[in-house]
């Protein structure tokens, strides 16, 4: 990837405003003047205090929410501004989105949930089905294909929702604190899974988290967002070489410095 090439995703001066309740409150800007860009194949982590509009930012990139001002360009195509009807959620399957909640369909089994994108895209065949089964095995869900989501543990549901996005192979994946509520052990496990899967396909990933360690361990580059209205408060290139050892990453000499400088910016 050369610096001269057009970035895959470009966010310029982005703003998002929520209307006040019944005309009583003034409209509030959640995001204002936010700019950054993402190159193809990059693993970008975004970190910010809670309530800093991280989810809103991803929603706007995935086009399930509309921006109020500024510009979002994906593959040089600008997203609509201010007109929710013109949105194209997921940009015709080019952007996958692993949301904070697993959002599995509670009436479908694990396997059916994983196959759901293929089914609605009309791409369900022996080849894609085999691919799905490989993924299920890769994340340790083999044997749970026929279970309903409520019969799975939190970590298993996360895995299922992760591979539901991987299964249709979108070039870009947005991830919104996907490992947030999990226990430390499961979390590290899933982080390792994610890096392994990323290494296989080298997708572009935008990963939102509120955990500084996670942001450093996973990303090529970390953006720090300010409190609302969010804008970029800092940018850090993570120089720790890959492949990384997640369990031992805290021992890496660069880790401490990065951690301290990011923490100073996350207020």
């Amino acid at each position: 990837m050369t610096a001269a090439a057009e970035p895959l995703l470009e966010v310029r001066d982005l703003g998002k405003r929520f209307a006040g309740r019944a005309g009583r409150d003034a409209p509030a800007w959640v995001i204002q003047g936010l700019s950054f860009s993402v190159n193809e194949g990059e693993f970008l982590t975004i970190i910010g205090p809670s309530g800093s509009g991280k989810t809103t930012l991803l929603n706007m990139i995935a086009q399930i929410d509309v921006a109020s001002s500024g510009m979002v360009r994906f593959q040089s195509q600008p997203a609509p501004i201010g007109d929710p009807k013109a949105l194209n959620p997921g940009l015709t399957c080019k952007i996958g989105y692993v949301t904070q909640e697993d959002n599995l369909l509670p009436w479908r089994t694990t396997l059916q949930n994983v196959l759901f994108p293929l089914k609605v895209q009309g791409r369900l065949n022996d080849e894609t089905r085999a691919h799905a089964e490989t993924l299920i095995k890769a994340v340790g869900l083999a044997g749970f294909e026929k279970h309903y989501p409520h019969e799975l543990s939190g970590g298993m549901r996360k895995r299922a929702s992760l591979i539901r996005t991987l299964v249709y192979d979108p070039p870009v994946i947005l991830m919104d604190e996907p490992f947030g509520p999990l226990d430390a052990q499961t979390r590290v496990q899933l982080q390792e899974d994610l890096l392994r899967l990323w290494n296989l396909g080298r997708k572009t990933i935008i990963f939102v988290t509120h955990d500084i360690g996670e942001a450093i361990a996973l990303g090529d580059r970390t953006l720090v967002l300010s409190r609302a209205p969010a804008r970029v408060a800092g940018e850090h290139v993570i120089t720790i070489p890959r492949p990384r050892d997640i369990r031992g990453i805290m021992g890496h000499p660069d880790f401490g410095t990065l951690y301290q400088s990011i923490r100073a910016q996350v207020q």
């Binding site: 995935a62 399930i64 959620p89 997921g90 015709t92 399957c93 952007i95 996958g96 989105y97 949301t99 959002n103 759901f116 994108p117 609605v120 895209q121 539901r164 996005t165 249709y168």
Partner: peptide, 8 residues
Amino acid sequence: NMARVVGA
């Protein structure tokens, strides 16, 4: 929203 994103 999830279903829209995956192309339903």
